[in-house]
Computed example of a mutant assay.
Amino acid sequence: MARIAATRTLSIAAAVLVALVAASSLKPAAANNDVDALTALRKGLSDPDGALTSWDPRLATDPCEWFHVTCDGANRVTRLDLAKHRLSGTLAPELGQLDQLQYMEIYGNNIQGQIPSELGGLTILVSLDLQDNSISGPIPATLGNIKSLKFLRVSHNRLTGPIPRELAGLPNLRVADFSSNNLCGAIPATGALKNIPPNSFANNPRLHQGGAYVPSC
Score class of each variant (00 low, 15 high):
Met1Lys: 12
Arg3Met: 13
Ala5Ile: 08
Ala6Phe: 04
Ile12Thr: 12
Ala14Leu: 15
Ala15Tyr: 08
Leu17Ile: 12
Leu20Pro: 05
Ala22Glu: 11
Ser24His: 14
Ser25Thr: 12
Pro28Val: 12
Ala29Val: 13
Ala31Leu: 11
Asn33Pro: 13
Val35Phe: 10
Asp36Ser: 15
Leu45Asp: 02
Asp47His: 07
Asp49Thr: 14
Asp49Arg: 12
Thr53Ala: 13
Asp56Leu: 12
Arg58His: 08
Thr61Glu: 13
Pro63Thr: 01
Gly73Glu: 14
Gly73Gln: 13
Gly73Leu: 15
Ala83Ile: 01
Ser88Pro: 05
Glu94Asp: 12
Gln100Phe: 13
Ile106Ser: 04
Asn109Tyr: 09
Gln112Trp: 06
Gln112Tyr: 06
Gly121Phe: 07
Leu130Trp: 04
Gln131Ile: 02
Asn133Asp: 11
Asn133Phe: 07
Pro138Gly: 13
Pro138Arg: 01
Gly144Thr: 04
Lys147His: 11
Lys147Ile: 10
Leu149Trp: 04
Arg153Cys: 07
Gly161Pro: 01
Pro162Gln: 07
Pro162Cys: 15
Ile163Pro: 10
Arg165Met: 08
Glu166Asn: 06
Ala168Asn: 02
Leu170Ile: 01
Pro171Tyr: 05
Leu173Ser: 00
Asn182Pro: 00
Thr190Arg: 12
Ala192Cys: 03
Ala192Lys: 02
Leu193Val: 08
Pro197Trp: 05
Asn203Ser: 10
Asn204Asp: 03
Tyr213Phe: 14
Ser216Trp: 06
